[in-house]
Design a protein around this nucleic acid. Structure first.
Lengths: 211, 211, 211, 211
DNA sequence: GCCTAACCGAGACGGTACGTCACGTCTTTTA
DNA sequence: TAAAAGACGTGACGTACCGTCTCGGTTAGGC
């Protein structure tokens, strides 16, 4: 479901020729093709996307109100799926979580431009909000849930609020992956980080540390 | 010294009318004025900057090769000064460091656009590198030095490399300040963070791990 | 019968849903409505006509192959009927003829746009030919017949060919009515013109050249 | 002097780079080239003119506010010069006058499109007025002067107003040349017309008809 | 006190992209 | 099968900026 559609609500189906889903895919894939080919972001114009996708400009504007809202959907289509959490322990869940952040940093680096597209989106509060709500926030919610379970199971201090704990766990990796994408993202980094962080965040007088 | 000048090397001074420094200031301040007035970043064109500053377009191009390089200098002029470190203890230094990150997040929120300018710059690797080298990297260097002193003084585990430790300290606050600028940046946050993090990162053989 | 139909030949009547004549009228009247409302000719698009007439675009294209051919029929519907000739004398016939030209000039001025539609049509030779054949030429034929009768009855010189005589009679009024529609088209003008022209065009051997 | 300039009055000379006259010529000649090549009038877009003239669109819009006003200047550049009147007699002057109308009809036919451009211009009252004032009206003034001299010299009835006489002389030829450009415009036509018309328009009791 | 080179403002220039609109064609559903 | 509705590829519209290039007019040395 595109940003535009989500804003305008449901459309009654019957009237007139329906919009082609194939066209929608062609536009998003055409945009990706340009980005993957290394076309500088500033040269990825609606006009050029239309040419690449073999589509009229109006067909794009019928679906998205501008380049930025199109990019939200392009990014959404390019984002890797959220990871399956093992649920065996706080440590295991955190490692999987940070691993996915790390891999996203790597993937971003390989097709380096997607990274910039994400950065670009912050130019418009409206667009950033759309991306934040549909991609960033759900992910954060998953992490907060992991923290909550950790506190419930006695694996984590309860005198710090969940938000703070979440940022402490994810922040270091996120900074590397997103803000310094050219930094070291070696394998095993997630495990080392989690262990270093957990060392001081377990309950003070924890009877059973569970492993 | 502007990015352009730094790239093109020294200019012999004598020949012809020298460039006016007043004009240079007018351009940078005109750009800031536009950004502070809430003009959307996409509408801050060279043409408009020239109009606002009462300056010919060519006068801008004579100094910077494009909008992005101009923005580097605008940002540099707007960045708050790096904080003075007390040097009394690792904990004190880290708190001052994180406080400055926090305040930068607050400042950014108030004049919200500078934030986006910074984001925008990631679109061009060349520009991002310039900003990174002259603003981001020096700051990181200061932080790494703090970490190094902490390890030397026996206030910090030495089995983790400095880069990792630095990211662990700064990452959580940076994520809040830069990636989620609408998140909670309450006063005292820096202190709480530093304490929570130091808890597990003091040397193992330290007599009192938690004061 | 529309231009399109006349070109495509007879349609077999039986097959499927028959075309609605009401729709045909709605289209032509919708077009006139737009023109009478003073919509600039350039803004009278097929799309707008369809909207005004409450009709699908395809329904228009099913009947006419373009805006110009539609205009031929619109104009044809708007043209006033040819006048009844008294036949009592050459002078009387000519006056009636010129009067109708004059009145057409006046009508044109009041709903000034029809005039421009006619002008517009000259842009396409094909369209102009269609209009010429079905509207202009029949009228000319009537006038030539008047001239012929005048020569036969001895009211007109026979040493000048009919075409020339016709143009001499109609030209002056036509120029005023069509080319200079803001010129003087006072009542009685037709009579004065005919008299002035007939003065030198009666047969030479006529006993009384001027009554 | 272009239509636009004539409307905006004098421009102060000094400020900024002056407009290139060569560019102005290139645009007008490019437009003519397209018309002469037989490009249908509807396909002569500003975009295409710009491409043909090797010029940016903005450069055209800087001088003319639209296609129609450009066409006024194109037409003005294409119009043949007004003829030199011999002044030896009314008959001679009229023949020269009608000859120029006839030749204009012929020229128009050869490069048939200019004719349509003129027709097209009637679509906009404003444009037509501009063309009328700078091309049509001056010509009419010359003709009226010929008529005036004819009456003064006793070569023409004085009981008919000059406007009427002028239309009677020029109308027949104009109708052929402009409204029916595919009609017969044989050589000698002007002479025959003038003689036929003068026959009845000389003063009634003229003592000396001056041959 | 000139000379001259580079500066400065203004704005024209060839381009390119913008977002809108109309073109004429093509699916849809409904009647 | 016609009809209304409206999506579709195409391409022109008029505007705004891009970065470059003249213009006339400063503004500094160096002579």
């Amino acid at each position: 479901m595109s940003l535009a559609e989500s804003g305008t609500g449901v459309e009654q189906p019957g009237r007139g020729r329906p919009r082609s889903e194939a066209v929608e895919r062609a536009i998003i894939e055409g945009t990706m093709k340009l980005l993957e080919e290394g076309v500088p972001l500033g040269e990825v114009s609606i006009e050029r996307i239309a040419r690449t996708a073999g589509v009229g400009k109006a067909t794009i504007y019928r679906r998205w109100s501008g380049k930025e809202e199109l990019f939200v959907d392009v990014l959404r289509a390019a984002e890797p799926a959220d990871p399956e959490l093992p649920g065996t322990s706080l440590r295991d869940d955190l490692i999987v979580l940070l691993e996915s952040v790390r891999r996203r940093g790597l993937a971003t680096r390989s097709s380096a431009i997607l990274h910039n597209v994400r950065a670009q989106m912050k130019s418009s509060p409206r667009i950033w909000a759309a991306y934040h709500n549909t991609v960033v926030e759900p992910r954060r919610r998953i992490g907060l849930e992991v923290v909550r379970r950790g506190q419930e199971n006695g694996e984590l201090r309860t005198d710090l609020d969940r938000e703070l704990l979440y940022d402490i766990f994810v922040g270091p990796m996120l900074v590397r992956a997103v803000l310094h994408p050219d930094s070291d993202l070696a394998e095993g980094l997630a495990e080392r980080m989690v262990d270093a962080l957990l060392a001081g965040l377990r309950p003070v007088s924890s009877p059973e540390t569970r492993h």
